[in-house]
Design a protein around this nucleic acid. Structure first.
Lengths: 354, 354
DNA sequence: AAACGTCACGAAATGGTTTTCTGCACCGTA
DNA sequence: TACGGTGCAGAAAACCATTTCGTGACGTTT
């Protein structure tokens, strides 16, 4: 491809052609115009539904475009308009459970319009994040969504030439706009549901206490208990890991020390699965003896547990959609700031009596 | 007129400004050139490491670019070169288990270079797929990867102006290039492993028989059995659903009818989880009495089972990486065709004795 | 008949970058 | 001194779609 194709002496068409003489070339507006026998300007106006074009001319242009299966080069359009019609979506935990629904929601919200999503996985590495952001800015994205790996606040990117929305993990800086799950509300919702089911001797088994999500959910549950004049059995929540193993171990400990409990609030569906396993081994019936509730509504775990697990859904898709909407508003010149919370949703299954 | 005006004090530069008078404008090459006191052409050559530029001039340009934190507009570059440096990735099952690793592998392979990924979710709808493809072609993607929802062959998109690679679900057409998991090989690998563990009375519990993946894995396992001079206990595999419920139900039936079995080969990790549950209930020890193997290596299910579940990993990330590599080759003018298979990998855990 | 309005279309500028070609100055050599 | 060579920089074309403005042609009004 180093052939310096000599300028077409015939001048007239002068399109690049392959050695075989085929017009192996995605058609441009000028091809359409030539075929329709009009100027480029007229062709553009005809295809874009602009006025000032005779109906018959428009029909001819449309037909020509159809025939060549012409599709306008959005790069050229973007260059002119200054907007690329793309947004960058940077995730930090593509393989994890929480990025994907958020990503789906955002893709859905944008895809409905005519914005495309450029996906980058930074894998929790801020160097990689920087690199991707530079690449995306070079592509002139109109905005950025940053999806964190865990719900704890993260360093702000500072001012960028395009609007940024932080999703799942909020930005430390109050001048950014962030969307997060309502973990406090989710914890409260879970506890309230158990109380509504007539339970009063609640325990909490949850995950890694360095996660804000863990402590927030506990805080929310405590609020609900306090409102109902109740106290946590044993006085404190059991923190550990986000795994079935911990759920099993903690459940055994709990039932030994406090056999009187009638409900267990779990910090994740994985933990809840472990808890359910142990309860079955110990012949404690769920939900009649002990109600169990999970968190995350991880379908594959919750829906097929024995019994099927009631869980708190964080509405991550909705979170993604809202993030997209916020970004859209910011791109339209209506930037927002602060941390906005997306409420959770209770998904009722058999592990809590109703 | 050799004097390069270092700056335009009269404002003749005529850049767009906001109402506040700030040069709120992402800097262009011409800004850099003006600041460095050279022409646009020279600035371009200096920044791109082209020859024909004095070292001192290059330094001045570089400094100017640095100062303005200039990043070249890739839209303009693409318009000129005809290559956008982007590929479209269309998935049909973003929320499912199998798209994501594939997607990660592809993103990884491209991200290492300087290709960005435009992500679209078609959700199994061919109308939506068409729509997305049109949109992506309008953006002048250099290639497309189509990730299917399930491993059965799908309709070809036919000829497109850019290369296409089908991943996970192969194209029906042999003139396309497809990458798929080696389900036959995976089934054989699982059976061989059980045989290597000294087992000889194998049964198979698998999922929906309308999935090629289900029947292929069974076929592979049968091959291994035949090679070892063995037969499937009961003579046939048990087909059902890809769920824990089916795993439990099938395991109970199986153990009633054929209590002599010493290994169960499961079509998915979900099924295997159900099987393990029932074995524990019936006090059949795993792996000493009965070995169990799963398929998919779905971490959250397999690693935390009791005992941890040996499983077949389909190497989906590798599949994604290879798809990206194939697409790259096709983009470079070396298109391939046919269906290529990515081998599986055995992930050893406690549920099979070694 | 002259002045004016409307309609349909085309020429040209625009956006930012790369690349080719041209031009200029300076050096060494015949 | 004249000529060829070399090193460096700039002018301009090219990519493609959109949009503004201008220009004819034709019809209507005074």
């Amino acid at each position: 491809m180093t052939e310096p194709a000599p300028a077409a002496p015939d001048g007239s068409s002068g399109r690049k052609t392959t050695s075989k003489g085929f017009p192996k070339h995605t058609p441009t507006l000028s091809d359409v115009a030539r075929l329709a026998g009009v100027s480029i300007a007229t062709a553009s106006k005809a295809l874009n539904g602009r006025a000032q074009v005779k109906a018959e001319t428009r029909a001819r242009v449309t037909a020509a475009a159809e025939q060549l299966s012409f599709s306008p080069n959005r790069l050229a359009r973007s260059l002119l308009s200054g907007r690329s019609g793309t947004v960058g979506l940077i995730t930090h935990d593509l393989e994890g459970r929480f990025s994907i629904p958020t990503l789906m929601g955002a893709e859905d919200a944008f895809g409905a319009g005519k914005v495309s999503v450029l996906l980058c996985d930074a894998r929790g590495d801020s160097i990689r994040e920087r690199y991707h952001i530079q690449a995306l800015l070079g592509r002139r994205v109109d905005g950025l969504i940053i999806v964190g790996a865990r719900p704890d606040p993260r360093r702000s990117l500072g001012p960028l030439p395009v609007p940024v929305v932080y999703a799942y993990a909020p930005s430390e800086s109050g001048s950014d706009i962030s969307l997060v799950c309502d973990n406090v509300g989710g914890g409260r919702m879970a506890a309230e549901h158990l109380i509504d089911c007539g339970r009063s001797r609640l325990a909490i088994i949850t995950g890694d206490p360095t996660y804000g999500a863990a402590t927030d959910r506990v805080a929310g549950a405590r609020q609900a208990l306090a409102d109902a004049g109740l106290e946590l059995v044993g006085g404190h929540a059991m923190f550990g890991a986000w795994t079935e193993e911990w759920g099993r171990g903690a459940a055994r400990t709990l039932l030994t020390k406090h056999p009187e409990i009638d409900a267990i609030l779990c910090g994740s569906d994985q933990i809840a699965r472990g808890v359910l396993d142990v309860l079955r081994e110990l012949d404690r019936r769920v939900p009649s003896d002990i109600a169990v509730i999970g968190h995350d509504n991880w379908e594959v775990l919750a829906a097929h547990a024995r019994p099927a697990l009631t869980s708190i859904d964080m509405n991550l898709e909705e979170l993604g959609r809202r993030a997209a909407a916020k970004l859209f508003e910011a791109m339209e010149g209506q930037p927002a700031r602060g941390v906005e919370t997306v409420p959770c949703r209770l998904v009722l299954r058999a592990s809590t009596a109703f």
